[in-house]
Design a protein around this nucleic acid. Structure first.
Lengths: 203, 203, 203, 203
DNA sequence: GATGAATGAGCTTTCATTCAT
DNA sequence: TATGAATGAAAGCTCATTCAT
């Protein structure tokens, strides 16, 4: 008599494990976070873990995929009338806000060193491509409306926005960095990037 | 009768191991780079490895310490007359050039996830503190000469220079990033940071 | 849903490993008895070994603790009316009988050289203290009833009983020693110790 | 120009190493006493160690052989007129005196667990055989003169003298045992052994 | 589904021993 | 003779993963 699988319960379990994994990764690094530790934090047995995720790597991938999904949702969810340039700043603020959870910054740093794991690398590439595609599109729209400099391609500007946000995340992970206090400077720096005023006469 | 031990030979061996480790770490990540692999690359036996480094972690620490030393040498070696602002740009260029060795970028990314290892974390803190102290000093000097904005503390500007360089390194490690082509934009971005928001003439 | 964990099964596994370890230690000494060898004898994988004992040392400690427990049970289980002097002889006989298992004698000899291992040393001290405390108490009771000489303290007599039994064990381990044939002499020697009549040093 | 090998110097080196080894073995056990540690204590390089002893085991064997030699010298050096029974007590006193060096007791305990090493086992057997042969001869002479009981064979009495001395050594190694205070009791115990049980064994 | 005992490949590290100098 | 850098076999131990219950 197969118990009717409750998809909601399943999803909740997955989230519970993902959350525990996030905590463990941020606390001990990837290798240091054993599946046993994750299970302990999640309050489950190891068997349960592998019922929901085929491998340890796959949890990382799942976390990344969730991030990718959220990215897509973020850009998809903007009010249609919002000026593209504004969307970019909204995104930066959104990303900075995410980093207020210190586990997020820790996770990003940890995951950076995992490119040797094929599954993780793929998820990482996916995440990055999605983000850059979304940004590129918005940047291009902003360029069309002359809200953003046009001497650099939309792609390159998107890349540099990612660069700034990643550098920001790195500082958060390094510690001693006040996210809320520094966010305005991040926004400024993005503005400078988008405006491109260079030494010599400013814009 | 005791063979006169040759310290130069010792140092050479250490460098040889460090070099092999750098290659292995960049190629396979920290956990994936087994000591056996490092030894194979270095062309030595495992005993020799541990003759020179007490643990695998200690190699990472040694690499970081070498970087710290080089940082100190870089700032110590500037011609006395060089304008501080110029020193900052020299540093950025220098850092970008270092990243042309793709192993450097890989290593930086890998080492980011290793804060759970006490010895490595300590070396990492050391490196960061040294770099920021050096930068802070130069930034302060530049501020004294009005070469750099003064609405932000020297410390904070130093921090953001590090942020930019680290973000840059992250992009290099992510791949598909042309270091030499992007370096000018990095310099621009640092200039914009040092000059501050647009209203008013820059520099 | 959780399979009801069977503590009896766990205990049986532990005993199985302890038994294998006893065999291996007696056969090859401590260092010579690799965990791999113990596992082979026990018919288990190495993971199983470390699932039940955190370290190789801990097996030795567990064996000793089991001995301590048996000592306590032995003295606790004497019929209340038994004359103390008789209890002492019962103990000696019991100890000698234990040594009929050649692994026991081998183990005792092996463990003697392991005082440098903190965990083992602690278990060893514990075992010894327990035994001597039990013996001391019985000896004291025997002295109260005038069954045993009183010119030596109960503690010292207990110590010398241990000395005799250990010396006996040493001979067993050395080989070529017929336990059953020699046991009466051990009993005699203990009797001589307890009576202490000495004819003067020479003849 | 081969330096003329000075045999005295060679012997001195050997003794120096043996002494260091004795210290190390007593301090850390056999496995815990690395050749490196022995070399450090002896103040020599590892190469020198292996110039004088082909293996680590051979040092143990050499120590044992030295003991064997001393045993032989002891029995060979008795004044011809000494009554055999007196020789036995002299030996016991001599052995007890040796154990005043705590390293000796430690070494004996350590070496007991090394029967798995062929070379050591051989030396151990040799030592034991020599000792027992010497003792047996003296005991037999004492029996001839009616100084010692004759209801037990000389061989068996020799064995039990060894048993008592070994038990004594074990107590010394266990610690908290005052050699000089306990030596008289050892002598008593040997006397009781040699004279045999008096009528009325129990009580 | 959930569990945790069992597994064993694979890791880092140790250390007796060799040998060129 | 004396040295210590180099060696590599072998050890203890970890941990992701499997599977009977």
């Amino acid at each position: 008599m197969p118990r009717p699988i409750d998809p909601a319960r399943r999803r909740a379990r997955r989230l519970q494990i993902i959350d525990a994994a996030l905590t463990a990764f941020a606390r001990h690094g990837y290798a240091g976070a054993t599946t046993a530790e994750i299970c302990r934090i999640a309050g489950i047995g190891s068997g349960t873990f592998f019922h929901h995720f085929p491998t340890k790597d796959s949890v990382v991938a799942a976390i990344l995929e969730q991030g990718t999904r959220e990215t897509r949702e973020f850009f998809g969810g903007r009010a249609p009338g919002t000026p593209p340039r504004q969307v970019l700043f909204d995104f930066v603020g959104h990303a900075a806000a995410d980093l207020a959870d210190p586990r997020a910054a820790g996770f990003i740093t940890v995951v950076g060193g995992l490119t040797a794991r094929p599954e993780i690398a793929a998820a990482l590439r996916d995440d990055e491509n999605t983000l850059r595609a979304c940004l590129r599109e918005v940047v291009a729209a902003a360029q069309d409306r002359d809200e953003v400099r046009t001497d650099l391609t939309a792609d390159r500007l998107a890349l540099w926005i990612v660069l700034l946000v990643d550098g920001f995340a790195g500082r958060v992970a390094a510690g001693g960095f006040d996210v809320t206090a520094e966010t305005p400077l991040l926004v400024d720096q993005v503005a400078l990037l988008l405006d491109g005023s260079r030494p010599g006469p400013s814009q």
